[in-house]
Design a protein around this nucleic acid. Sequence first.
DNA 1: TTAATTGAGTGGGATAAAGTGGTAAATCAA
DNA 2: TTGATTTACCACTTTATCCCACTCAATTAA
Lengths: 144, 144
Amino acid sequence: MLIGEYKHTLDEKKRISIPSKFRSVLGKNVVITKGLDNCLFMYPLKDWNIIASQLGERSFTQADNRNFNRFLLASAHEVSIDSVGRILIPENLCSFAKIKTKVVFAGIYNRVEIWDESAWDTFNEQVSKNADSIAEKLGQIGAI
Amino acid sequence: MLIGEYKHTLDEKKRISIPSKFRSVLGKNVVITKGLDNCLFMYPLKDWNIIASQLGERSFTQADNRNFNRFLLASAHEVSIDSVGRILIPENLCSFAKIKTKVVFAGIYNRVEIWDESAWDTFNEQVSKNADSIAEKLGQIGAI
DNA sequence: TTAATTGAGTGGGATAAAGTGGTAAATCAA
DNA sequence: TTGATTTACCACTTTATCCCACTCAATTAA
């Protein structure tokens, strides 16, 4: 399972090392794509394949399907983890997530979220404030 | 699976190189045709044959069928990828998609979309803004 | 407590591949 | 046959990938 929060630095070549705790779960090849709330999602290849095929099988005749697939599938990149545990973050994803040099990896069960540090801090602060009320809402609809 | 976003340049001879990641999936011969939202669709030959036969078998008595088939089937071109991985984009498709020199290839599961760069940027910006709400919609109908 | 060892994170250089531009050969039309 | 257009081939430039080396922190043993 992917849990925990780690801060690493992006080098000049847009390389960044994956937290070592995640490596055994992620395997050799992972997929990175645009996530919601301006972060990036990273999936182990086999989890990604399930998600991608569910999305990809949907008809292109519906505009919502087309657009969401453009968002998630077109921005996805399969990247492989190098011999010392690093990946290359593709240019367009880097700029989407406004990633500079300090990066946060957040393990969220079956995916890893990749955030620019300052964006993470800001977002996290907001969520922390509202965690109580979000929890109540989830409780009401039987989520927890 | 065809995923990822790549920017390439069309040369004077209307040649453009296919992203190398796509080549093994696409094979030697591909079909390009008019796509929705003013882009072009490119399919591996065998996937195209399936789609084309599904469309072709719909009755021509329905005006919508006739028109959609005119749109998709009539504008389709089979093109072959040359020794260094390039294709020629047919003139009429080029002007349909308003392609100038900078071109975006977007891999969307079983097809590749070909966009003029500026058109893609504009469109994508809109989609990114609405990604949250589209995701919620798809989530509600059990897509993800 | 201190030194040694291990593993993780970071940086840089060499090599290979991808992308692009141009020229020569071939095909077709006038 | 000649000119024009298309196809195939070759070459250069840039980008990406791989590999090696160094630093730092943490853990373990003397």
